[in-house]
Amino acid sequence: MVPRSEVSVTLPLPGPLVPARFVRRRVRFLIDVEGDTGPFTAHANNTGSMLGLLRPGRRVGLSVSDNPKRKLAHTLEMVRLPDFRGDFWVGVNTLTPNRLFRKAFLAGAFPDLAGYDAVRPEPAFAHGRLDFALSGPAGQCFVECKNVTMVEDGAAMFPDAATLRGCKHLVELTRLAREGNARAALFFCVQRPDGDCFAPAAVIDPDYAALLRQAVAAGVLVLAYRAAVDEAGVRLGGRLPLARGCL
């Protein structure tokens, strides 16, 4: 049997990527790009700022939906980031962390979640929903997934924009951990290769950073994992340590 920590998990893209060049972010969910056949508009489901990524002329990769009811067929999946050590892709699709977590959990890729063998998406919780509820011999564990696209001074950081919704999730997860009836966990999916550790972005959202420190102190499990992104898909990489002094 393959050790849990060595399980290889890849989330394939729905089809070949469409290459384009970023032109502008018109509104929150729309971007204009220039493709091989001319300009067009694509959907971007990332509500964050994507700080440092969306620059005019930058290469992007788009997936194509075959759903005839969609107004826009293309979705922004990744942005090519120039780097003196070599350019790399940054995954920006915020649905990826949930999909990758579910697949990796069912494959037994998280040693810290041993004792849970079933997963239920979007459980109702505290007048809202969390991403997953795990259950098994170990009891129950609630999990919230976040996408990380920002790295500063070697630290992968979340969030890249102030997040009231993220703060509410932290409050509920912390309450769960303190009550002790169920475990609580955060899965931070770092969709870029250049972060050596994980830290909250206190400069961006000091409230979120303070609440995350309280969550960790209360026993909320932080699972920050690097994810390797390329034109074929997203592969779960190694776990990142928490930055010293930040949590």
Rank of each mutant, 00 (worst) to 15 (best):
L76W: 01
A201H: 15
R175A: 14
L30G: 01
D160N: 09
A177Q: 00
Q191M: 15
F125W: 10
A44R: 12
L113F: 04
G108S: 14
V92R: 05
E77L: 14
G136V: 01
K69A: 15
K69D: 15
D194E: 15
S135H: 02
H127P: 00
G154Q: 13
R26K: 09
D117A: 12
G245D: 06
G128W: 03
F105C: 12
L242Q: 06
E152Q: 08
V222Q: 00
L13F: 03
R165I: 04
A104G: 10
G154V: 04
E77Y: 00
R192T: 10
C189Q: 05
Y225S: 05
A138W: 05
L54V: 14
F188N: 13
F125N: 12
M78Y: 00
R239L: 02
P121A: 06
L17G: 10
C246Q: 11
V222A: 09
L72C: 06
P19K: 00
G139W: 02
A133T: 13
G115D: 00
V33T: 05
V18R: 14
A44E: 01
V2Q: 13
V216N: 09
A224E: 04
A42F: 07
L164H: 14
R102M: 04
V220N: 04
D112K: 08
A224F: 04
V222L: 09
R25G: 06
A199Y: 02
M50H: 12
A42C: 10
D131P: 06
G219F: 04
L164A: 13
E6A: 14
H74W: 11
S49D: 13
T96W: 15
P137C: 03
E122Q: 10
A224N: 05
L164E: 13
L242E: 05
F125G: 00
D32C: 02
F84W: 01
P56G: 13
R175K: 08
A156R: 03
D66G: 01
D117S: 09
R99N: 09
V23N: 04
A199I: 07
M157D: 08
V2E: 15
E172D: 15
P19V: 06
F29C: 06
T96F: 14
L17H: 04
A109K: 00
G52D: 04
D83F: 04
L176N: 11
F187Q: 12
K69C: 14
